[in-house]
């Protein structure tokens, strides 16, 4: 489902952040992506959610070589990928409800079809009474959960979560982890970037470790 072969990445003319990265994610798998801060976890995710192009190597998402994928096909690929951004990236002029419903709205679907699903999901992540609030009025943990809700609302085949427990207390962290595991059980491949050891140790899932720009695999 996701295949990287000898991928290198750099920002502009800067140094290579990632070198010779090769790995393969099976459908239905759950992995952690770990490594010290600044190691390149977010950068690797950017390659996967098609926000950045590799400077070399081959990336294949759902069997599509991203280098040869036309611009018109990108939205279709991106809809199969749910992303929890490290800095959330909720849109300030929209309510929490509208933010979470966004991935469904951009498919052109009628709001009546998905309103109940979105409200149910928001209630499930504990934002049932914050639906009409603007993101800036939410606490860090609430924003985190809104970001997660937006990432999973479209039932993506692949969920990429960048430090999804960075702003919540350990208890909520465990609860969110259970959400990811539940989604994984329903068939979604999940990749969680984190430097939270407790989270990794709690689940015994395999680990992709980035260190000095190189990636190693630990079962």
């Amino acid at each position: 489902m996701v295949r990287f072969e000898n991928v290198g990445m750099r920002y502009g003319m800067g140094p290579e952040i990632l070198r010779d990265v090769s790995f393969h994610l099976e459908p239905g798998s759950l992995h952690f992506l770990t490594g010290p801060s600044g190691a390149g976890k977010t950068s690797l995710l950017k390659l996967m959610f098609l926000a950045h192009k590799p400077s070399r190597g081959l990336i294949s998402m759902f069997g599509h070589d991203v280098a040869t994928t036309s611009r018109a096909d990108l939205p279709g690929l991106r809809r199969r990928i749910g992303v929890v951004f490290q800095e959330f990236r909720l849109l300030e002029h929209l309510t929490t409800y509208e933010n979470v419903a966004l991935p469904l709205k951009v498919t052109g679907r009628n709001e009546a079809e998905y309103r109940d699903d979105v409200e149910e999901l928001l209630t499930w992540v504990g934002l049932g009474d914050r639906m009409q609030a603007r993101p800036s009025t939410l606490s860090g943990g609430e924003q985190q959960r809104a970001a997660i809700a937006r990432a999973v609302v479209g039932r993506p085949a692949l969920l990429l979560a960048d430090e999804p427990t960075g702003n919540v207390d350990p208890e909520m962290g465990q609860r969110l982890l259970r959400l990811f595991i539940e989604l994984n059980r329903l068939g979604t491949s999940v990749l969680i970037a984190t430097h939270d050891r407790a989270l990794v140790d709690a689940s015994r899932a395999p680990e992709l470790i980035i260190q000095n720009g190189e990636l190693t695999y630990r079962d």
């Binding site: 959610f49 926000a51 018109a72 990108l74 939205p75 279709g76 991106r78 809809r79 992303v83 990236r89 849109l91 966004l102 991935p103 951009v106 498919t107 937006r150 479209g154």
Partner: peptide
């Protein structure tokens, strides 16, 4: 950018 990343054409 966010619209694009959530799959908006």
């Amino acid at each position: 950018e966010v619209l694009h990343l959530v799959g908006a054409p």
